[in-house]
Design a binder for these strands. Sequence first.
DNA 1: AACGCAACCAACCGCTCCCGG
DNA 2: ACCGGGAGCGGTTGGTTGCGT
Length: 291
Amino acid sequence: MGRAPCCSKVGLHRGPWTPREDALLTKYIQAHGEGQWRSLPKRAGHNILLSLLLLLHLPSQCLLRCGKSCRLRWMNYLRPDIKRGNITPEEDDLIIRMHSLLGNRWSLIAGRLPGRTDNEIKNYWNTHLSKKLRNQGTDPKTHHKLTVPPEKKKGKKKNKQKHENKKGSSEKTLVYLPKAVRVKGLSCVPRTESTFTLDSNSGSASTSQEKVQSPEEVAREVNMVWGVGNEGIFFGEDHDLVNTSYVECHSDDVHTDHGTLQKLYEEYLQLLKDEEKPADELDSFAQSLLV
DNA sequence: AACGCAACCAACCGCTCCCGG
DNA sequence: ACCGGGAGCGGTTGGTTGCGT
């Protein structure tokens, strides 16, 4: 029955982040704090088309990513307190011990390792530690001694082998660990003290009260799925209604047929892709569209 | 040099939980 | 009490890189 995706995939970037996108996200979060992920791309100006309609208000800040993707990128990569790589033997040992206690609750384990992310630990576990334990004759899932020696790997087809190993089959031991549950901030060990201080003091609270410029107030209701209505172009995310009157009053100068917008959008994507362009290229691109 | 395989890891997916209305 | 949206989490995928042949 699955819920609808967290965001419309229409028109959103996927795949690896570019330095430009990283910079936009970092800049935004430094200014406004973490949280409100779902609405972040809007507030960071992710809707270029909307931005065009809104007289290209701060076009260089456009971030065509869904909130979920922004959160992930920030949490796993961009946060300033993140240590990357060089996991020490002490950390190794701690991860193994924590895993034996907590199972695959990566976020809890990460909470004990300042600067480490759950994703990093999970990856590290899957690629290094589980192998290491297996080689030591320990079942990486149960942390019990293996009765049979670790199976030697044979050269096999790339992905098939990889995924068969992961999915496992008959030899896989079922471990009845409780299903991972989210732990509230209080009971959960913060990743780092500084992060928590930031969150509780200034982060989301201040974010929610931040002053929003009027075009962005509209942007809150207006998002990415776009089409042409009776009164001209409109945008909206999923089911959001669109304040067409507002758009109308700001879009007089913009050609609003579908083809033109599609073209603009494609141009924008092209610019975003092209990292060789100077940082203000998007601005000038947008400005060039102003009549 | 070219190819194939394995390892790595960033990013995505889908689910669950929390919380406000 | 119920419902829906947002956030967080663990599992999985697939692109990239490195290495051996």
